[in-house]
Nucleic acid binder design. Structure first.
Lengths: 113, 113
DNA sequence: ACTGTCCATCAAGGAAAGTTGATGGGTTTT
DNA sequence: AAAACCCATCAACTTTCCTTGATGGACAGT
């Protein structure tokens, strides 16, 4: 048995600090949250998103790039269109990272005076 | 029975979008994460944190304020010192918010071509 | 009172992120 | 091959965030 196959069920690969920061920063923007919510119902192409959110194409493209680089979105070209879809695993990974952070806070609360 | 008393056990009050954004933004900074980790072991005063993290007093004070305003920290004055401590509920609330966001993404995945 | 320590706040400068309009590459349609 | 459409990228600008050094308030000790 070379490398014991893990039996953990979903077990997200655990985030490194930079990935976590990128995710947090990507989510900390109203426009990008709107994009995520708009993609909640399924895949959409850029031109659909521009009209749905009332954004300039250039502006939307910028935010899509941020979200994609953070790992929250995946894109797929289809002819002349580019479709974006959510990567819900990313949200789950961030949740795991937060849980781990909270777990490291064993604060015993030591009042001094 | 005027307002039925909820039976939910811990039930964090649920975050509004602005609170969630403040939390995300506050966590998306390396220095502030160091502060949080430093406070993981319990309450600390500002002067302890400055030496522990090697930060200028003014700089640390700025980041402490951001974290406090986001709800991640609470402070307490004791004589000449000011002690900061973590508010782990804030992390839990953010986790809940993320779960809710993920739940709203029912992406049916509709390939077109 | 005077001095020293701890801390928050401020103004000014620098760095990073977001916005805008324009340009060009790639694809389909005519 | 020309025209129309979808989209990413770029440079210039604006805005937001962070850093730095200085100032002052609150408290404790002398």
């Amino acid at each position: 048995m070379p490398t014991a196959p893990s039996l953990a069920p979903p077990a997200p690969p655990a985030l490194n600090p930079d990935q976590a920061r990128a995710l947090l920063k990507a989510l900390a923007d109203p426009i990008r949250l709107q994009v995520i919510e708009a993609l909640g119902g399924g895949e959409r192409c850029v031109c659909e998103l521009t009209v749905a959110l009332g954004l300039a194409q250039s502006k939307l493209s910028f935010h899509l790039k941020v979200l994609k680089e953070a790992g929250l979105l995946a894109d797929r070209q289809c002819g002349r269109w580019v479709y974006y879809q959510l990567q819900p695993e990313a949200l789950e990974q961030l949740r795991g990272w937060l849980a781990q952070l909270a777990a490291s806070c064993t604060a015993p609360a030591e009042p001094c005076c």
